[in-house]
Design a protein around this nucleic acid. Structure first.
Lengths: 356, 356
DNA sequence: CTGAAAGCGCTTACAG
DNA sequence: CTGAAAGCGCTTACAG
């Protein structure tokens, strides 16, 4: 592959001049510029980004470590992150932790070794020392969706409390009293926050939340299935199962179906995180939708601000309830989806108490 | 951040010795090794991968350019690629083309600039000159899923012909005669192959395939919706719509639902590519499943073979039909999913003519 | 076994 | 405006 030396030779100038032309340095004669550009063209020259990075100490690359690429929520997040990063002149390298702290650390380490300019992370657990150390050591970092408390790192996330309260109100209004939740790992912020929001809302409506109705999942489908089976085996099974993410809702659906039961007649179902397929499942699933695309973009902006020396900002965006039929609501026509939300459904106005 | 010089100073040896210890070079005294390792530990030293790459001319990184990350098929492919690459000591950088040739080229260029060791690509179109040139110039490359004809690059893909024939047999057996297809872009191999396989199977069963029953989609949901609306507007609408990928099937479902029609009573639906949610849609959707994970792994193995100087091999794996209820088949119990396939359904034995 | 030195492909003060 | 030179952080023949 042609190097800058080859271009210099071809153009009859020094490598310094070639470099200047390539970097749009003002002090280059028109003549030199033309010859360099011609040489670049002739040789099909492309600057070696590795060499440039070594010299400039910047890679124009962001690392994104997410907990599970197969989760459509994170896939969409990753996509919006890449989009915004590209718009700002950065590439992104994605590391998929698969909800495993060891894999997460592997990716963080690899990314750090590659000297990425900044790191976007949605931690699988509550306190990877590697991540905490990197942040303390000055690696530009921003948490998205999930975060680690006690570290001075901006957080870009969505607040689901109002939406969870709306959900409980909706369920209560439909006459449901025994509500259960499939929680995410307590070590993750989203895992514990969603249970807490649910517990608070239940209390508000004077509904009990016995321990037996709090199942411990890990955000993966299989755990949703297992926990749901446990619920169904109870002497007094819940009337509603609320899954703290869409994959556990999938598992719950599997479990309900395996027993030959029906949603919502036999048991109602709701999920945190909305996905396009929820409109076409049997029945369409009531869910809490996050402004995923906006979260990804805001996270990139915060990180790039930090990298480029501007003060980064934490951002919290509201999630909102999207009512469908899986809890017993009658079917209704749905308007087309606004771009931001994956599902093509609006909540009834009264339900949507979300605000910034 | 500590550099190799700092480690050398701390350990009281030369940087050459530090490098040898780090690279497990045999000729290092036990004493030197211990001191270097202690220094590495003390300083929290991590080798700079950028510098190492510049020097060794290898990045231990693979590029993967896929047509659409939001398509669960590609998400799963990406995941298996990363997994196998990691097992072989490589990282992977994913570029999402979003079915846009210009974006695809952007990512290919960026990846090449970063001097990745090899490129895995599923081309959005039939002949990006950039990709063809890179292959000719000697960049180790392997095509996955889709490929560009006329270039000497190994192809790892799945052959859906037998499965498509099984599908047509299934539909014919259910009494359907007017079958339509939502095709992918003719410029992609999967786009044209699936139509051709469908056309051939239809001919085998003596069924006509009028032009009006071949809708042109682009593998995205919106095109599935649009084409399906066209079908429904026909004086004689088809009895079955076969979508050439899962996203267009989603769009088709949207269109059918918007008209207040039902699947399969009013119109039957089948899809190429199987996803987990197809088990829970209303109704469960008959689909053709690819061995996605195995494709990703085989592609990585082929690419790494090529990179490391071994002869790479093209691989073709069979897809298989998974019968559900969206075409009129009666419901039936389904066994749990084998790991390789996302959907938890086996085809009836008679249907599955796939072989290697 | 060990170190001095060259060199990977760039960028950027510095001097002219 | 231009070029010679230093240097980013490594690896690796070469000599000892």
């Amino acid at each position: 592959m042609a190097s800058i030396k080859d271009v210099a030779a071809e153009a009859g100038v020094s490598v310094a001049t070639v470099s200047r032309v390539l970097n749009d340095h003002p002090s280059v004669s028109e003549d030199a510029r033309t010859r360099v550009l011609a040489a670049v063209e002739a040789l099909g020259y492309r600057p070696n980004a590795v060499a440039r990075s070594l010299r400039t100490d910047q890679t124009r690359t962001l690392g994104l470590v997410i907990s599970d690429v197969l989760n459509p929520y994170f896939t969409e997040l990753a996509r919006s992150v890449e989009e915004e990063a590209r718009a700002l002149g950065y590439s992104v390298i994605i590391g998929n932790a698969d909800e495993r702290p060891d894999l997460q650390d592997h990716h963080v380490r690899t990314l750090l070794d590659r000297r990425i300019d900044g790191l976007l992370v949605s931690p699988t657990d509550g306190g990877s020392p590697l991540i905490v150390d990197a942040a303390r050591a000055g690696t530009p970092m921003v948490f998205v969706d999930r975060w680690i408390p006690g570290v001075d790192v901006p957080v870009v996330r969505s607040d689901g409390r109002a939406a969870v309260r709306d959900l409980v109100a909706h369920l209560h209004g439909l006459g449901h009293r025994r509500l259960a939740i499939i929680a995410g790992p307590a070590a993750t912020t989203t895992g514990s926050e969603r249970v807490e929001a649910f517990r608070a809302a239940m209390a508000e409506y004077g509904l009990p939340l016995p321990d037996a109705y709090i199942g411990q999942g890990d955000f993966q489908a299989e755990s949703g299935r297992r926990v749901t089976e446990g619920f169904l085996d109870l002497a007094e099974p819940p009337e509603v199962v609320f899954a703290a993410d869409n994959l556990m809702a999938l598992g719950a659906l599997d479990a309900v179906r395996a027993r030959g039961l029906r949603v919502p007649q036999d048991i109602a179902l709701a999920a945190f995180d909305d996905i396009r397929w929820f409109v076409h499942t049997d029945p369409p699933i009531t869910a809490i939708a996050q402004p995923t695309g906006e979260l990804g973009r805001a996270a990139v902006r915060a990180l790039v601000d930090r990298i480029e020396g501007r003060p980064p900002q934490s951002v919290t965006l509201p999630a909102r309830l999207v009512v469908r039929r899986s809890c017993g609501e009658p079917a209704h026509r749905e308007p087309p989806a606004p771009e931001e939300f994956p599902a093509s459904v609006e909540p009834s106005p009264a339900m949507n108490r979300s605000q910034t």
